[in-house]
Design a protein around this nucleic acid. Sequence first.
DNA 1: CAATCGTCCTGCGGGC
DNA 2: TGCCCGCAGGACGATT
Length: 274
Amino acid sequence: MPELPEVETIRQDMLKKVKGKKICKVEVKNEKPIHIPAPSQFVKKLEGKVFRDIFRRGKYLIVQINSTENLIFHLRLTGRLIFSPRGERNPEYTRIIFNFEDKSRLFFTDIRGFADVYLISEREWGEIPSLQSIGPEPLDPDFTLNEFENLLKGKKGKIKLLLMDQSFIAGIGNIYSQEALFRARIHPERNSSQLKKEEIKSLYENLLSVLREAISYRGSSVDTYVNLQGEKGEFEPYLQVYGRKGKSCKRCANPIVKKKIGGRGTYFCSKCQK
DNA sequence: CAATCGTCCTGCGGGC
DNA sequence: TGCCCGCAGGACGATT
């Protein structure tokens, strides 16, 4: 499941591989992921256009097409963007193919079919409510400890769920919320309003460091994530709690427990995360 | 009104 | 061994 580090890795790869390329043909194999506009319009509007700059906002990948329009992807759980320099056959579960003038191609694939694609102008961002209401970027230089403290003021509920709330902070999902909490030694069910000042500082620092490290290792391939070249991320060996049910805690050797929190599998050490 | 539940979907793994 | 049930999850909409 692509979270901020995985989407950022794809963005960096796309800057190298597809930025500046002209689309000569768009093939829609499956219309389901295309929300806006109608698939026929989607194809028509993109053909002849150039992939300009490429941005990321939380888990959204935003390709600038011209001064007003943006091609926006949300990969959700199993969406993939795969680049092919030369006519290889379509990967499994291909839904959209972007054919470039130089014969290279970008495949948008998705197994489970939750991923979303939009072609909209910035003034239509309201059409994507979760993009409209998205919280601050954790790796933005403006996102200081003071900013994080202010953001937490008046917030209650389990800290893990708050970290995963995209309107609170952008790009954090089930894996990195757990890794950050483990590193900060904070129990995922702690009430956000009861965190001590030094715990907030530790959470802030560990959240940023785990995201930065994951980006430097090109993401984690839990589930089906691969980068633009179809390669797995290399951060998985460095995940300290995710998926480690019953195994001994890397810090205190106590067995890692798994519990559903907010309907999502959550791993933590009940001894050293308080 | 905030929290929880069901929904979408398909592959895979646990259990018998 | 092989099959089948149920789990996995991002975000939204319905429900309590």
